[in-house]
Design a protein around this nucleic acid. Structure first.
Lengths: 270, 270
DNA sequence: ACTTTCTATGATCATTTATGATTAAAATGC
DNA sequence: GCATTTTAATCATAAATGATCATAGAAAGT
């Protein structure tokens, strides 16, 4: 133990790429220069990172920088490595806080969403005694491993490219359901409502919200002000949003006027 | 327990690994360096730990560290995995033959059973174009990976210790369903009927049999003459049994008198 | 009790991978 | 057209990895 290396604050490549993705998602466009300064590596390294990320289809390379890919191609298959990079820390933080809202012997809906997945993971880890309902195959499998969890799967057709179920019989099932809490993941949050990209999915989320005594929307910061066509449900009093970064003041004011609570989950630092 | 170990600072490997998993779940990523400092073991040991954890599928290894795996591919309970190994060759043979009964654009029910799982695997492998219905989470996840498969999940409560769904809304759903073929796994085959160990499961199988134009029962040889309390369905004409070893002459005669076809699947030799 | 195995660990080293510097080519702006 | 910036390619260096080996401690057999 003679030598002493100062590099305790070293960042591994995967982490750096994850930060790059987040920065691009945050700003829409970013230059190679700025990235280099922000994450403190050389230009060639940034270029290599961007090339690697672009290959997985999340971003689009352009001269001098990179942009978010506007057309989220239907057939792009992000390899596990890169898929895991997208806002992993934020999702974990949101999920952790969400799970802390649960008590034993409650009934809970887990919507199909990667953020909600984290909440489910925490719930299993905390050995909570729950009656859980989900329309997501991965979450179902996860919850199945919790010995103290009574699991119901809504049923329906599988949405291509994801693990979520929609349509019958799940839709009717949800309409006759009453639970204590619903964790709902969403694609876009406007001043007054939650929206999603397809009608069927929006319907599912609407019924989930209606079935629950308390609705908790889990969404990372990128969802505020995003665009999506189909209205899932309007915000109502007693709704809560758990997120990692606050929305714009305009959205915030509007939501708070509606009685919606916005809670920030503390994200682990690098 | 005469001796008492004083080394409280020493933790056993399992503890250390679970601590590593915890840390990764907390932060999303972690470097090998940081882990080494945190848990006070050498870098090679950390690498070995990470490799071992990664093999179990919880985390994903990357250069310099590891990340949480969001897309939990096929991570099933170890006890299930060992169960799946029982009579593996026989099940594979039965599944192979069963899958060869399928044609493109058919609708098929896949019952919850490890033998049927093999049939589903073959169907996916053959890139068949199917509308598939299942009440099993593992089969659902498997079929979800088939790009040409339109998947419906019946929904219901999870049976503890397995991955099959029973009860509502799946039961009602199945009653309103009509499909070309149903692959049904069963616990016991008598001279005249198929039986199972629980009433709910028997009901599900009955509805599945009723929904199908053609019923194909998949069962390894041990199921003939086995005992189970609840009658799922009587054999009818045009039912088929695919198995690996023939039943006793008595059972065979009785089944053939009912018009049931018994097909032997050729088991691969070592 | 003693010895033998076996596993876990740490150290060493060759190999692979990531990074930063350099430079020529390409793209952009004027 | 030219000047400037950005890029891709190459190379040398540094870091991380996997493999192998030796040792220490635990578990098991005698």
């Amino acid at each position: 133990m003679t030598t002493f290396t100062q590099k305790s604050s070293h960042i591994i490549p995967v982490q750096r790429r994850s930060r790059i993705i987040e920065l691009i998602r945050l700003k829409g466009f970013i230059s190679v220069q700025e990235l280099s300064e922000t994450v403190c590596v050389s230009l060639p390294t940034i270029r290599r990172d961007l090339a690697s990320i672009a290959k997985s289809g999340i971003i689009q390379r352009s001269h001098g920088g990179a942009t978010l890919k506007t057309n989220q191609g239907t057939t792009f298959e992000p390899d596990y490595q890169t898929a895991a990079l997208i806002a992993q820390r934020e999702k974990a933080a949101i999920g952790r806080l969400a799970a802390s809202r649960l008590n034993n012997n409650q009934s809970v809906i887990f919507d199909s969403s990667s953020t909600v997945y984290e909440a489910a993971r925490q719930a299993v880890e905390n050995n909570l005694v729950l009656t859980a309902v989900t329309n997501d195959l991965r979450i179902a499998e996860l919850l199945a491993s919790g010995p103290s969890i009574n699991l119901l799967v809504s049923g329906g057709s599988l949405r291509q490219g994801s693990y979520s179920l929609f349509g019958e019989p799940g839709t009717s099932f949800l309409q006759n359901l009453h639970v204590d809490i619903a964790f709902i993941g969403i694609h876009a949050i406007t001043k007054t409502a939650c929206c999603d990209t397809s009608l069927e999915v929006a319907y599912i989320k609407r019924y989930m919200a209606m079935a629950a005594e308390k609705v908790i929307v889990l969404a990372d910061g990128s969802k505020f002000g995003a665009v999506a066509f189909f209205n899932a449900f309007e915000f109502e009093k007693s709704f809560e949003i758990i997120t990692d970064s606050p929305p714009s003041p305009a959205i915030r004011r509007s939501l708070e006027k509606k009685g919606v609570t916005i809670t920030l989950a503390p994200v682990e630092k690098y």
